[in-house]
Simulated scan of single mutants.
Amino acid sequence: MNRCSLALLSAAAALGLLAPAPAEAQAACGPREQLVKLLSDQYKEDPVGIGLAQPGQVLEVFASSNGSWTMVMTMPDGKACMIAAGDNWEMVTRVKGSPI
């Protein structure tokens, strides 16, 4: 099982959200505060990026110093879902005029 599947399963279990569907097919969702605490406590991940996805939906990227990362989508009602996770996150600083 890869890190994304483990993270989604761990979050779903911690938030009491396990459903009968396969882990890869579901997102772990719950109150944003609980999801952020779980990412901080279990994976040592903190916010490194944020943006508006759809009206009222906020996309955040959380990452740790060891390279793990998680993408979280928060809805207007405060419900947040882990939508992707992985390893080897690197912050990129682009120099104006140079390709990434």
Score class of each variant (00 low, 15 high):
1 M>R: 04
1 M>Y: 07
2 N>W: 06
2 N>S: 10
3 R>I: 13
4 C>F: 00
4 C>P: 00
5 S>K: 02
6 L>C: 03
6 L>H: 07
6 L>S: 04
8 L>F: 02
8 L>S: 10
9 L>M: 01
9 L>R: 09
10 S>L: 06
11 A>G: 11
11 A>M: 05
12 A>M: 04
14 A>K: 00
14 A>P: 05
15 L>W: 00
15 L>T: 00
16 G>A: 01
17 L>V: 05
19 A>L: 08
19 A>P: 05
21 A>V: 03
22 P>H: 02
26 Q>T: 13
27 A>M: 08
30 G>D: 04
31 P>E: 07
31 P>T: 00
32 R>V: 06
33 E>W: 05
34 Q>R: 13
37 K>P: 03
37 K>V: 14
37 K>L: 13
37 K>G: 14
38 L>V: 09
39 L>Q: 09
39 L>V: 06
40 S>G: 15
40 S>I: 10
40 S>D: 15
43 Y>L: 14
44 K>T: 13
46 D>A: 11
46 D>P: 01
48 V>C: 09
48 V>D: 12
49 G>F: 02
50 I>D: 15
50 I>N: 15
51 G>H: 00
51 G>F: 01
51 G>S: 14
52 L>M: 14
54 Q>G: 04
55 P>A: 12
56 G>F: 06
56 G>V: 04
57 Q>L: 08
57 Q>C: 05
58 V>K: 09
58 V>E: 10
58 V>I: 11
59 L>H: 09
60 E>F: 05
60 E>W: 05
61 V>W: 05
61 V>K: 13
63 A>K: 00
65 S>H: 09
65 S>W: 02
65 S>R: 14
65 S>D: 12
66 N>Y: 06
66 N>C: 05
66 N>E: 11
69 W>C: 12
70 T>M: 10
73 M>L: 14
73 M>H: 07
74 T>K: 02
74 T>I: 08
74 T>H: 03
75 M>C: 06
76 P>F: 11
77 D>H: 09
78 G>F: 03
78 G>L: 04
78 G>D: 00
81 C>M: 03
82 M>R: 03
82 M>A: 12
84 A>N: 13
87 D>Y: 13
88 N>Q: 15
90 E>S: 04
90 E>T: 10
91 M>W: 11
92 V>T: 10
93 T>G: 04
94 R>Q: 15
97 G>W: 02
98 S>C: 06
98 S>T: 10
99 P>E: 12
99 P>A: 14
